[in-house]
């Protein structure tokens, strides 16, 4: 995957990411590529650094060393002394604006209705008018099957409904890449289905996605590429058929064995 194809095809290229919390080294040199329209799943045991990796990609955490390119521009790269230096604020803002994120805990704005949650960023950040954005937002709500709930407050929705609103809210900013951090882990099993269905829909529309997940079925059926992480390292990666069909590494086999039973 190191081929030098047209660099614009790469939505995200990360090289040698190191990240520590105090003296706890959580990422120990992670590299990954995400191409346009690709669905990358990141799996691995709890505490292996999956969330931290995802959060580094959109600057919710800062990295200590390494580089991250977003659509061909450096968000962060090493300076001559080997320390990570971030791009100027306004350039970073532009790069980050092409990434949407969906959290495990939804993080909807509780004081706004469903529709207001979707309108907020386009109105405040993109300075779009209500007339421009409201039809788009309503269309997104229809797509996630929650148009009737547009005037409800998030506390009145089930977890699965809240998560679908969160997805729609991120999509309202028209991102090129969607990041998901265990979007169904906080949900009852019967509610995960509707969220996964929404995500499958997105993948079918060729949305570029990076998904940290414990849903092995989803990872196997939907991903174009799977990364298995443990202890801050990528242990194994490849096509889902290979990872799930005949994993090469012992640790991967053990992990999948535990997950599937």
């Amino acid at each position: 995957m190191e081929n030098t194809t047209n660099k614009a095809e790469y939505m995200i290229r990360a090289r040698g990411i190191f990240k520590s919390f105090q003296d706890n080294e959580v990422l120990k040199g992670i590299s990954l590529d995400v191409c346009q329209g690709e669905v990358l799943s990141i799996i691995g045991p709890s505490g292996s650094g999956k969330s931290t990796l995802l959060r580094c990609l959109n600057h919710l955490e800062t990295i200590d060393k390494g580089s991250i390119e977003v659509k061909g521009e450096f968000l962060v790269k090493n300076d001559t002394s080997g320390r990570a230096v971030y791009a100027p604020k306004h350039e970073m803002r532009k790069m980050l604006s092409c990434m949407g994120m969906v959290f495990q805990q939804f993080n909807l704005f509780p004081h706004m209705t469903v529709l207001e949650n979707l309108l907020e960023a386009p109105l405040q950040v993109k300075r779009q008018t209500r007339e421009e954005i409201q039809p788009v937002a309503e269309e997104l709500l229809r797509k996630v099957g929650l148009y009737e709930k547009r005037d409800a407050y998030p506390s009145r929705l089930s977890g699965g409904q809240q998560q679908r609103v969160a997805i729609a809210r991120a999509l309202a900013m028209k991102p090129d890449i969607m990041l998901f951090d265990e979007p169904t882990s906080a949900l009852d099993p019967e509610l995960t289905v509707e969220v996964l269905k929404t995500m499958r829909g997105l993948a079918a529309e060729r949305m570029t996605m990076v998904v940290v997940t414990h849903e092995m079925t989803f990872a196997r059926d939907v991903s174009s590429h799977v990364i298995f992480m443990a202890d801050g390292l990528i242990i194994e990666q490849g096509h889902p058929a290979d990872i799930f069909g005949c994993p090469k590494e012992e640790r991967t086999r053990l992990f999948l064995g535990n997950m599937l039973h």
Binding site: L60, S97, N107, F109, H111, A166
Partner: peptide, 24 residues
């Protein structure tokens, strides 16, 4: 999570304070 959601949506610190944090 409220700050993080606001940040990933592109809101500035001032907007986050005024629109998200203050009302709550």
């Amino acid at each position: 999570g409220q700050y993080e959601a606001a940040k990933t949506l592109g809101l500035t610190y001032a907007q986050t304070m005024q629109r998200i944090i203050l009302p709550q």
